[in-house]
Design a binder for these strands. Structure first.
Length: 972
RNA sequence: GGGUCAGUAGCUCAGGUGGUUAGAGCGUACGCCUGAUAAGCGUAAGGUCGAUGGUUCGAGUCCAUCUUGACCCA
C-alpha cells in the first residue's frame, strides 16, 4: 500500500466479539457450574413442565433411570463415559420437548466396602468377629456416604445435569425397607427356597469366600488314580479317574466322561514290582493321556485291546470304591452313574472326572443337571461329620491351615479296597484365603435361591407364569436394544441361567428377612414362615430405623410376638446379593418417588455391556418376579474404555487415563466431545493423541461459532423473509431444515456421533469454507441496508440458534458461553430452551440440487485459480476474472445462483455457452465445465480489495462504486 | 477353554439387500491470504478395507479358518 492511498480499514464492518478464540475451559467451567446451581436449572425445567401441563400442553415425561455406581473410590474414565452418554440422552430429550428427568443413584451395600472397614479394623488390631454387627454396619454406611459425596462432585464437574440434591442410595432406610419387601414378595409367591451349593470355604476362618477374596499360591497336593469297577458291562474293565483331592472320594456320586474324547481299552501285561497295577487287568482311559497313566502306575507293558466309543458309557453304573467296605455300614453302597459332561477334557488326568457335587462347581452343575444327591459330609472346620463311617471327625485342614489326616486316610482306604491304581504328589496353583493365607476348599453350604422356573400365581401373568418366561418375553418383545445385539446376548443368558442365588454370608447388606421353623427340613411345607403381618412389621421397622434393626437384640421376639411363638423360629442372618438391591431400584425409585413414573417402567436403562450379566439382568429377573415384566423400555449399552492401542487400562501398565486429569488439562467439554465423536456401541479408545485430535476439532468448531458472534451484533434484529433472500441464503436455510430432521432423528436414536458429525461437517464445510468465506465481502463492505447483508445476518441468526441448541447436550459449557455472549442476563441459559424451531418450508430439494451443480462448477473455478496461484500469477482469488464454459442448461443453473463471481470470490467472471477453447482447465469428475483464467482488469479497491475497472472514478478515492456508496451512506 | 462383539487412511468415523478408479472430517506437507490472525482459504500425499482360503462374472460387503483386542463365563 502506498503512503498516499487512503486507509479504509476503520470503515469496514469487521467482526467484533468478546468471545475468545481460546476457551480456557479448565479454568472457566467451574463458574458455569456455579451459575447453573444458582439458577437451579434442573428444578426450573421441572417447573417449566408443570407450567406446560397447567397450560394444557404437557411435556411428556422421559425417564432415564440411573444404574447406581458403587460408592467406593474416585471416578475412572468408564464412569465418565457412562454418565456423559446418559447426560446427552437426558439433555437431548429435554430439548426435544420432553420433561426429561434424571435421578442419580448409588449402590452402597456389599463386599468391597465391607473389606475396607475390615482392613481399618485390622489396622487397629481389632477382629471383625469381636465387633458388634450394628456398629460394623454403621462404619460401612459412613464409608459409603463419604464416597457418595466425592463422586457426586466429580460427576457434577463433568457437566452432568440431574437431581443431585436428592439422589437415591440403596442404603436409604426407605430403600432398605423396599428391598426387604421386594424380597418378601419372593418369599410369599413361592419362588424362594433353600438349597445348597459349593462355595469357596476357608476352614480356618470358617467362612465362605468370594472369588475376589481368594488368592492363588503354589500348594503341594496328593494325586491319586482310582479304579471304578462297573456293576456290569465294559468287559469288567476299570474306569480310572484322577484327582488331587482324595478327601472328596467319600462324596463321589458320579464319573463324568467326554462325548468327543477318544477312549481305549488297555490290558496290563507286565508291571514294575512297586506297582499297584495287576497284570491282566483291564483299564479304560482316554488315549491321549494313556501313556502318562502307564508311567504313573508303573506299568511296564500293556496292550491296547480296542477302541471304546464314548457311547458305550451311556447308562453304565459303577461301584463306589468303598462299596461294601468293611466298617462302611453301607454308606457307599449306592450306584455311581457314568454321565456325559462338556467340562471333561483329555489333556490331563485320565479322560474321566470324579464328580462330587458338593465340592466343585462343575460337579455341582452336573448334580443339578442329573439330579445327583448333595452330600453333607464336611463340616465348617473341614472335618468329616462325626457319624461318617471310617473317617468321622478327621480334618482336611486343621485350624492353622495345615493338612489333616483326611487325605491320607482315604488313600489308605482306597489301597485297602483295591481301588488305588497309582498315587503321587503335585505342586500346583491352589486357592488360599486372602486373609489367613491358608488353603481353602470347595464345600457346599446352605444358600437361598429364587426359582426361575416356578409358576407364580400373582395375577401378573400377561407375559408368562414364571420368572424366566416373563423375562424372555420382555427381552424379545417389550424392550428395544441399542445396539441391537444386546437382545440376543441377554436372551441367551436368561435362557441358560440357573436359579438365582440370593444369599451371601456377609454383614453389609439387606438381610433376607425371613424365619425358618425350628426342626423343619427345607423341603417341608412349613419350613418358611409366610405371614403378611410379620412382613408388614419388618417393613415398618426398616422404614423407621433401617435394616440395622434386624441385628438388634430381641428383634425376632418383637416382630413375631403375638403372631407365632418366637422360640419356634430361627432368624436368617444372610444378606441379599447386592444385585438384588440394585435390581430393586425400579421399586424404590421409579415407583415410590415423586419424580418417578406411574407404571414403574423406565424409558431407558443405560450401562456398559458387562451389565447384561449385572444390572440389566438382575432388574429383569426382579421385575419379572414382582411386576411381571422388565422395568425398562430401552436398554442402551456402551463398550469399555481402552488405551490408544486398544488395550485394557490398568494401573500396572500405566496406560490409564483419569477423567480428572483430562478435565484439568482440556476441560470437561473436551472429554464430552471425545464421547460424542466415538462410537460408543463398541469399545472406545482414549489417549494423548486422540484427545489432542478432539481438542483440534473443538477449536475448529469454536472459531466458526466465534465468526457468527462477531457478525451478529451488527444485525438489526429483523428477519428478511425467505422469499426475498438471495438463493445462497435460501440454500443455507435448506441445509438447516435438512439438518434439523437428521439431528432430531439421531438424538432420538441415541446416536450422538452421527449428530456431531453432521453438525461439524456443516460448520466446517458449508459454513466456514463456503458460506462465510463468500459472504465476508457483503458482511464487511456492503452498506447496512444492503439486502444481501441483511439476508446474510438473518440466516446467521437462524444458524446461531440452531447450532447453540443442537450442540448444548454435547457441549453444555461452551454452548452456555456462546449463549451468554449474545444473550447475557441473570436468568439466561441455553439449557432452559428447546431445540430452535426450524421451518419445514425452508426445505427446497430443487434448490439443493441446483446448488450441488453450482458447487461442482465452483470447484473447477477454484482448481483453475489454484494452477495460477502455484505459478505465482496470482495470490488472492480476487485477482482473477475467469471465463467459465458450460452448456446452456448449466449456464441457467449457475446464472440463477446469485452472482457466480461472488460464489467463486473473484472480482469478475464470465459465463460462456460457447465451446471451450483448447487447453481450458477442467476436472475429471466434473463433466461439462471448463475454465479459462484471466486476470481481473482494473485497480484494486482499497476498501473491498476487489479489482474492478471503475475503481478510482468515484468521489471516495481508490474505491469501487459499491464502496463509494457505502461510505457516503455512512456519512463519510 | 467356551460364548458374544469388534478390527476400513496417522486419528475419529461413513460405506442399505455383494457391482464402475473405497469416501468424509481432523491431523500432516505445501501454497495463498494477512480485515475470523496462536485464525481463515486451497491443493496434495496417505488405505494389500486384520490374515488366509472359499462361493461368485464380480467381495470391504457372503461363508470357513486363523489372528489381535475387548466383555461375559469356565
Amino acid at each position: 500500500m502506498c503512503a498516499d492511498t487512503p486507509d479504509y480499514r476503520s470503515t469496514v464492518y469487521l467482526p467484533e466479539t468478546e468471545f475468545p478464540m481460546r476457551a480456557g475451559l479448565p479454568a472457566r467451567e467451574p463458574a458455569w457450574l456455579e451459575r447453573w446451581e444458582t439458577l437451579g436449572v434442573y428444578d426450573r425445567l421441572r417447573e417449566k413442565a408443570k407450567e406446560a401441563a397447567a397450560n394444557g400442553a404437557p411435556r411428556k415425561p422421559y425417564v432415564l433411570h440411573d444404574g447406581p455406581p458403587y460408592a467406593n473410590g474416585n471416578l475412572h474414565i468408564g464412569h465418565a463415559l457412562n454418565k456423559t452418554i446418559k447426560d446427552m440422552v437426558v439433555r437431548s430429550h429435554q430439548m426435544m420437548g420432553f420433561d426429561s428427568r434424571y435421578v442419580p443413584g448409588w449402590d452402597c451395600h456389599g463386599l468391597p466396602i465391607e473389606w475396607k472397614i475390615e482392613e481399618q479394623y485390622r489396622a487397629k488390631g481389632l477382629n471383625k468377629d469381636d465387633v458388634d454387627v450394628v456398629a460394623f454396619r454403621q462404619e460401612c454406611r459412613k464409608f459409603a456416604e463419604g464416597w457418595v459425596d466425592i463422586q457426586r462432585e466429580e460427576f457434577k464437574r463433568l457437566g452432568v445435569t440431574g437431581n443431585w440434591a436428592n439422589p437415591y442410595l440403596t442404603m436409604d432406610f426407605h430403600a432398605e425397607a423396599v428391598i426387604a419387601q421386594e424380597f418378601m414378595k419372593f418369599l410369599m409367591n413361592g419362588t424362594l427356597y433353600q438349597g445348597s451349593k459349593p462355595v469357596m470355604w476357608s476352614p480356618v476362618e470358617k467362612t465362605a469366600l468370594a472369588e475376589a477374596e481368594v488368592e492363588y499360591h503354589d500348594h503341594t497336593s496328593h494325586t491319586i488314580w482310582v479304579r471304578f469297577k462297573p456293576v456290569a458291562g465294559l468287559e469288567g474293565a476299570s474306569v480310572v479317574i484322577w484327582t488331587t483331592t482324595p478327601w472328596t472320594i467319600p462324596q463321589n456320586r458320579a464319573v463324568a466322561y467326554g462325548e468327543k474324547i477318544a477312549y481305549g481299552l488297555y490290558r496290563v501285561d507286565a508291571v514294575d514290582e512297586k506297582s499297584t497295577a495287576v497284570a491282566g487287568e483291564l483299564l479304560v482311559l482316554a488315549d491321549s493321556v494313556a501313556e502318562s497313566v502307564k508311567t504313573a502306575a508303573k506299568i511296564t507293558d500293556w496292550t491296547r485291546v480296542r477302541d471304546v466309543a464314548a457311547s458305550e458309557f451311556e447308562g453304565v453304573i459303577l461301584k463306589h470304591p468303598y462299596n461294601g467296605v468293611e466298617g462302611g455300614n453301607g454308606e457307599w453302597d449306592y450306584d455311581v452313574p457314568m454321565l456325559p459332561g462338556d467340562h471333561v477334557t483329555d489333556d490331563a488326568g485320565t479322560g474321566f472326572v470324579h464328580t462330587a457335587p458338593s465340592h466343585g462347581d462343575d460337579d455341582y452343575q452336573m448334580g443339578v443337571k442329573f439330579k445327583l444327591p448333595m452330600t453333607y459330609n464336611v463340616t465348617e472346620d473341614s472335618s468329616y461329620r462325626k457319624d461318617l463311617p471310617l473317617f468321622g471327625g478327621q480334618h482336611i485342614f486343621d485350624t492353622n491351615g495345615k493338612e489333616g489326616p483326611a487325605n491320607v486316610s482315604n488313600i489308605k482306604q482306597l489301597a485297602y479296597a483295591g481301588a488305588l491304581l497309582a498315587k503321587g504328589k503335585i505342586k500346583h496353583s491352589y486357592p488360599h484365603s486372602w486373609r489367613s493365607k491358608a488353603p481353602v476348599i470347595f464345600r457346599n453350604t446352605p444358600q437361598w435361591f429364587a426359582a426361575i422356573d416356578a409358576k407364580i400365581e400373582d395375577g401378573k401373568g400377561t407375559y408368562g407364569d414364571t420368572i424366566r418366561e416373563r423375562a424372555l418375553k420382555s427381552v424379545s418383545e417389550l424392550v428395544t436394544f441399542t445396539p441391537a445385539t444386546g437382545r440376543n446376548r441377554l436372551h441367551a443368558m436368561i435362557e441358560q441361567r440357573p436359579d438365582w442365588v440370593l444369599s451371601r454370608q456377609r454383614a453389609w447388606g439387606v438381610p433376607l428377612t425371613c424365619f425358618t421353623k425350628v426342626g423343619a427340613l427345607p423341603t417341608d411345607a412349613d419350613f418358611l414362615l409366610r405371614n403378611e403381618e410379620v412382613n408388614a412389621r419388618i417393613a415398618a421397622a426398616f422404614e423407621k430405623d433401617g435394616a440395622d434393626v434386624w441385628y438388634t437384640q430381641g428383634f425376632k421376639e418383637k416382630i413375631l410376638a403375638g403372631i407365632v411363638n418366637p422360640e419356634d423360629y430361627n432368624q436368617v442372618f444372610d444378606v441379599l446379593d447386592v444385585w438384588f438391591d440394585s435390581g430393586s431400584t425400579h421399586a424404590f425409585v421409579l415407583r415410590d418417588r415423586e419424580d418417578g413414573v406411574p407404571d414403574q417402567i423406565a424409558d431407558v436403562y443405560l450401562e456398559g455391556t458387562d451389565q447384561h450379566r449385572g444390572w440389566f439382568h438382575s432388574s429383569l429377573l426382579q421385575g419379572s418376579a414382582t411386576i411381571g415384566r422388565a422395568p425398562y423400555k430401552n436398554v442402551i449399552t456402551h463398550g469399555f474404555t481402552l488405551d490408544e492401542k486398544g488395550m485394557k487400562m490398568s494401573k500396572s501398565l500405566g496406560n490409564t487415563v483419569a477423567p480428572q486429569e483430562v478435565i484439568k488439562e482440556y476441560g470437561a467439554d473436551i472429554l464430552r466431545l471425545w464421547v460424542a465423536q466415538a462410537d460408543y456401541s463398541t469399545d472406545l479408545r482414549i489417549g494423548k493423541e486422540i484427545l489432542k485430535g478432539t481438542a483440534d476439532s473443538y477449536r475448529r468448531l469454536r472459531n466458526t461459532l466465534r465468526f457468527l458472534m462477531g457478525a451478529l451484533p451488527a444485525w438489526d434484529g429483523k428477519h428478511v423473509a425467505r422469499d426475498e433472500m438471495p438463493e445462497l441464503e435460501q440454500f443455507i436455510l435448506h441445509r438447516l431444515a435438512e439438518l434439523d430432521a437428521q439431528v432430531r432423528r439421531d438424538y432420538a436414536a441415541f446416536d450422538f456421533q452421527a449428530v456431531f458429525q453432521a453438525i461439524f461437517t456443516f460448520a466446517t464445510s458449508d459454513l466456514s469454507a463456503f458460506y462465510f468465506d463468500i459472504r465476508k465481502d457483503a458482511l464487511y463492505c456492503d452498506a447496512p441496508d444492503s439486502l444481501e447483508r441483511r439476508a446474510c445476518l438473518s440466516v446467521m441468526d437462524h444458524v446461531y440458534h440452531a447450532l447453540v441448541t443442537w450442540l448444548a447436550p454435547i457441549l453444555p459449557f461452551t454452548m452456555e458461553e456462546v449463549w451468554l455472549t449474545r444473550f447475557p442476563g441473570e436468568d439466561s441459559s441455553v439449557h432452559l430452551l428447546d431445540f430452535a424451531p426450524v421451518e419445514a418450508g425452508w426445505l427446497n430439494a430443487d434448490l439443493a440440487a441446483r446448488f450441488a451443480k453450482t458447487r461442482a462448477a465452483r470447484r473447477v473455478v477454484t482448481g483453475a485459480l489454484e494452477v495460477e496461484r502455484t505459478a505465482k500469477t496470482i495470490g488472492s482469488s480476487l485477482e482473477a476474472a475467469p471465463t467459465v464454459y458450460v452448456s446452456p442448461e448449466l449456464a441457467a443453473v449457475i446464472g440463477s445462483a446469485q452472482g457466480f463471481d461472488t460464489l467463486c470470490i473473484t472480482s469478475g467472471l464470465k459465463i460462456s455457452t460457447e465451446a471451450a477453447p483448447e487447453g481450458a482447465f477442467g476436472l475429471d469428475d466434473v463433466a461439462g465445465v471448463k475454465v479459462v483464467f484471466e486476470k481481473a482488469a482494473g485497480e484494486k479497491c482499497q476498501r473491498c480489495w476487489k479489482i474492478l475497472p471503475d475503481v478510482g472514478t468515484h468521489a471516495h478515492p481508490a474505491t469501487c462504486a459499491r464502496c463509494d456508496a457505502a461510505l457516503s451512506a455512512a456519512g463519510l
